[in-house]
Write a protein that binds this DNA or RNA. Sequence first.
DNA 1: CCTACATGCTCTAGTCACTAGAGGAGCAAG
DNA 2: CTTGCTCCTCTAGTGACTAGAGCATGTAGG
Lengths: 154, 154
Amino acid sequence: MSVGVSIGVAAKASGVKVPTVRFYEQIGLMPPMVRTDGNRRLYGPADVKRLTFIRHARELGFEIDAIRELLQLQDQPNQSCAVADDIARGRLGEVRRRIASLRALEAELERMVGECSHGRVAECRVIEVLADHCECRFHAHEADGAEADGAEGG
Amino acid sequence: MSVGVSIGVAAKASGVKVPTVRFYEQIGLMPPMVRTDGNRRLYGPADVKRLTFIRHARELGFEIDAIRELLQLQDQPNQSCAVADDIARGRLGEVRRRIASLRALEAELERMVGECSHGRVAECRVIEVLADHCECRFHAHEADGAEADGAEGG
DNA sequence: CCTACATGCTCTAGTCACTAGAGGAGCAAG
DNA sequence: CTTGCTCCTCTAGTGACTAGAGCATGTAGG
């Protein structure tokens, strides 16, 4: 009977890094793990699945709190999934906004790179375009809400 | 003769928030500002333009260090712009990777929302899709390099 | 001139989601 | 028994801000 695997194996299986797995336990996204005699965490298949769930959710752009909600839904499956659906819908809207911004951004960078004649900076549009507001065709920030400002997340 | 404007005015004109303007000075992205008798920062048109430049670059997804390089290029315009071009090119590649990931993500979320029948969580694919690797059609993380893993960045 | 009140200043600490490193313990192979 | 890997806890650092305390300054109205 398999009692469980080590954190390293669970990490590899789920695609989450070892320190991040511990971090998830620390912030309560993963439950406190069963330990061996030697104080090492043991992960069962359900735990690995949960980690995989978290990784996917993160890759899909869900924030930790949203994932927490989803996990709570999963832990008590007799609730309506309206909440989960709402979260997914909200995420979908944000993803679409981000794609739109990035497309404008892509066009801008293409233009910048295309127009750069590899001469001196004085004639290089890479600088000019970013310095001069009126030349910038990327105005997503004016259309976007506050939420989408960090294409980077910060 | 206009000696300059206050930080609030410069912030409004450039679209950068006041604390962020001070932060940029603190990390050396903006030079130490001239002060009034009452120790308040004074911003000239060139400073506002620089702030605008920084904001645009940030919105385009440039990291602070990349912006620092670009600003150094701008400060000494007799250099080749090959470096700036490289930065823009690298950014363009990353933007395209991000767009690809987000498109896959969009499709996944559309499917998730579309298949959710608003019943109980047990039948809700929003949970299942994220928990079960083999059902997930979003495998951008396997194709992407290490750089793109954080669709979110930091 | 006096009073509000907005705006400015510095400094510290908090945010998010990790990531890195110190310093030590456990464990399997040779 | 030693080597070398993985694991443990704990603290501190990252990036790019953001928030708040506590005080100074500037301005408009009365």
